[in-house]
């Protein structure tokens, strides 16, 4: 009866930002990104990609509550980088990885369908 609407899970409400950024007030080069209407799919790949960056001292994400459709990604970097820089780099790298994967998969499909 009082269940939230199903679309609540993936439609960003009007007037809300998809990604908001908040610097840590006490630690330099630490920040949290709040990503609206995303879940483990994005959270985990971004976190793992951040771990590949040597300048990232800490990266983690959490889904605070199953009925709050947002994730919080926390990043802590060395002075060589900044959370924002590391976050952008991680997304760019993942994007390029998927470009490569797509091309590789298409080539495989062409190869396999050519065989028959």
């Amino acid at each position: 009866m009082n269940a939230p609407d199903r679309y609540e899970r993936f439609v960003v409400p009007e007037g809300t930002k998809k990604v908001s950024y908040e610097r840590d007030t006490k630690i330099i080069n630490a920040a949290s990104f709040t990503i609206e209407r995303e879940d483990h799919t994005i959270g985990n790949i971004v976190r793992m990609q951040l771990h590949r960056d040597g300048n990232v001292l800490f990266a983690g994400y959490k889904l605070p509550h199953p009925l709050q459709y947002k994730i919080i990604v926390r990043v802590h970097t060395s002075s060589q980088s900044s959370p924002m820089q590391a976050y952008n780099l991680a997304i760019n790298d993942l994007d390029k990885e998927l470009d490569h994967l797509k091309a590789a998969f298409e080539a495989e499909v062409a190869r396999v369908s050519g065989e028959y």
Binding site: V19, F33, I42, I91, L98, K102
Partner: peptide, 18 residues
């Protein structure tokens, strides 16, 4: 599979900082 890669790319694009 190809659509999934494309959708994931779109999702990543949407979470770029504005």
């Amino acid at each position: 599979v190809l659509n999934a890669i494309e959708v994931l790319k779109q999702k990543l694009d949407a979470v770029r900082l504005s």
